[in-house]
C-alpha cells in the first residue's frame, strides 16, 4: 500500500472567493438592455461595477449592523459577498452604461450603439 493521499479532496476555494449569485431581471427594448439586480445589504461604496472587454461584472460586499457578540442561529445570506458576470454582445455600447443603486436594488441601462438601433427596412417589391 502506498501512502499516496491524492484521493483526498482538494482544499476548498478560499472563503474570500466564494460569493452569492444575486437574482436579476434582464429586459431588452428597442433602445438597449435594462438589468435589475438585488444586492441587499450592500452600501453604495461597496458596490463594484466593471466592464472589461465584453464582460460585465457586478460585485458587492455585504455590510450589516451586527451587535457585538451576536451568534448567528439561522443564515440564508450566508456569504458576505455577491458576484455575477455577464457577457455583453457587441451591438451594446459599453461606454454609455448608466447605473442607479437604491436600497440594495441596482438598475443598469446599457444602450445599443447608434449603428445597431433598429431601422425599419423597406422591402421593395418589383
Amino acid at each position: 500500500m502506498s501512502d499516496n493521499t491524492n484521493v483526498t479532496r482538494k482544499p476548498e476555494a478560499p472563503a474570500s472567493d466564494m460569493a452569492l449569485l444575486p437574482p436579476v431581471d434582464v429586459i431588452e427594448d428597442a433602445g438597449g438592455i435594462t438589468l435589475y439586480a438585488d444586492l441587499p445589504g450592500v452600501p453604495k461604496d461597496k458596490l463594484n461595477l466593471q466592464i472589461e472587454g465584453d464582460t460585465l461584472t457586478i460585485e458587492g460586499e455585504v455590510s450589516l449592523d451586527v451587535p457585538e457578540g451576536m451568534e448567528s442561529s439561522h443564515a440564508e445570506v450566508n456569504l458576505p459577498r455577491y458576484r455575477r458576470m455577464f457577457t455583453l454582445s457587441k451591438e451594446l455600447d459599453a461606454n454609455k452604461v448608466s447605473a442607479e443603486f437604491n436600497q440594495g436594488a441596482l438598475k443598469l441601462r446599457i444602450p445599443k450603439a447608434e449603428h445597431a438601433q433598429p431601422r425599419k427596412i423597406e422591402i421593395a417589391v418589383t
Binding site: 438585488d38 441587499p40 445589504g41 439561522h74 440564508e76
Partner: peptide, 19 residues
C-alpha cells in the same frame, strides 16, 4: 431571505428585501 442571530440581550432579525 432572512438571517437570525442572538445576543444575551436581544434577538436580531435581518430581512433582505431590497428596493
Amino acid at each position: 431571505a432572512m438571517n437570525v442571530g442572538n445576543t444575551p440581550h436581544s434577538v436580531e432579525i435581518y430581512a433582505f428585501a431590497p428596493g
